[in-house]
């Protein structure tokens, strides 16, 4: 098998969709926050929280979907904290976000150590299993790539459609898009800027946590330190890549994941000739190139990172 024919392997694309799933959730989450005008660099920490919360819930005996709910709620809680600091208090969104990431990550590790003081190898849970969609899964290549995944992956795709619908077709979505562009416009139409942004950050953070939960409840079956491993930062770039649009962000996530899946296979093929780090680098280099090509003229939300203080002069 050579490097070119690998591209047409169904298993490559199945892996790409699998790798993309947590990115899709977290990118959607970041997208919602930024559309409302709040940069959320807490993403990396909130994904870690989600990964732990979902997993530990299931480990304590609850069913998988309860774990998903708990992960989302835990993410929303940290989102509210970020929102409280950046929206009504108007603190620097960069600094607060990085603080949230450090806080959330450390708290999670602490909680893990408290819950499992003695273990050497992390305990495992029964995760989501792939669910074949009848008929659709028989389509060549596409069937294996898209329709033999776990329910959480399907949920990620549904979430893209849902978020796009809410943003573009409903009054609340219109308000969110407006508040990221010009909060004064929202206030002048009688809508409360603070609550709107807080809500958006909380919901966005819940999506981020789902991205983390995917790692422990679908991709792997237990919780490791550093398992989020920079995925949150990739999502920040994917939002820009997707020009703050859910559909384009989905494409970006799949593209990045495809590079990642491809490099894993290349490693096996050519690993004897090149250090493996070169392959690890590949998706990031390609992402940077794609970013340069796609987002030079990205129309970012005009009020992104600008705190809004009512009655300020």
């Amino acid at each position: 098998m050579d490097a070119i024919s690998m591209i047409f392997e169904a298993s490559l694309w199945a892996a790409a969709v699998r790798i993309a799933s947590p990115l899709i959730f977290a990118t959607l989450g970041e997208l919602i926050c930024e559309r409302a005008g709040v940069l959320n660099l807490g993403i990396e920490g909130i994904m870690t929280v989600g990964a732990f919360a979902g997993w530990v819930t299931v480990y304590s005996g609850a069913d998988l979907w309860t774990g998903v709910m708990v992960a989302a709620l835990a993410g929303a809680a940290f989102g509210l904290l970020h929102g409280f600091l950046t929206v009504p208090l108007g603190l620097s969104q960069h600094v607060t976000g990085i603080g949230i990431t450090l806080l959330a990550t450390s708290l999670t590790y602490y909680a893990y150590r408290v819950a499992f003081p003695e273990v050497t190898s992390p305990p495992k849970i029964e995760t989501f299993v792939p669910l074949e969609i009848p008929l659709l899964s028989q389509i060549p290549i596409l069937g294996e790539a898209l329709f033999r995944q776990t329910p959480l992956t399907y949920l990620a795709f549904i979430a893209v459609i849902l978020v796009a619908y809410v943003l573009y077709r409903t009054p609340i979505g219109l308000a969110v898009r407006t508040v990221g562009e010009n909060p004064a416009a929202v206030e002048a139409q009688g809508i409360d800027v603070t609550w709107l942004r807080l809500g958006a950050v909380a919901v966005g953070s819940a999506f981020m946590a789902l991205g983390g939960a995917f790692l422990t409840m679908s991709a792997f079956n237990s919780f490791y330190f550093d398992m989020v491993n920079g995925r949150g930062w990739i999502c920040i770039a994917l939002v820009v890549f997707g020009s703050w649009r859910p559909g384009k962000a989905l494409l970006g996530a799949i593209l990045f994941a495809a590079f990642d899946a491809y490099q894993l296979r290349l490693q096996q093929l050519a690993g004897a000739y090149l250090p493996y780090q070169v392959f690890l680098m590949l998706p990031y280099i390609l992402s940077i190139l794609a970013l340069i090509a796609m987002s030079r003229r990205a129309g970012y939300p005009r009020a992104l990172m600008i705190p809004y203080r009512k009655g300020e002069r």
Binding site: A175, T178, E181, N182
Partner: peptide
């Protein structure tokens, strides 16, 4: 107090419907 990236209609409708 207009949002530049939205249409005229979006700007007018904003806040006039139940959220």
């Amino acid at each position: 107090t207009l949002a530049d990236n939205l249409t005229v209609l979006d700007n007018v409708v904003l806040g006039t419907e139940p959220l």
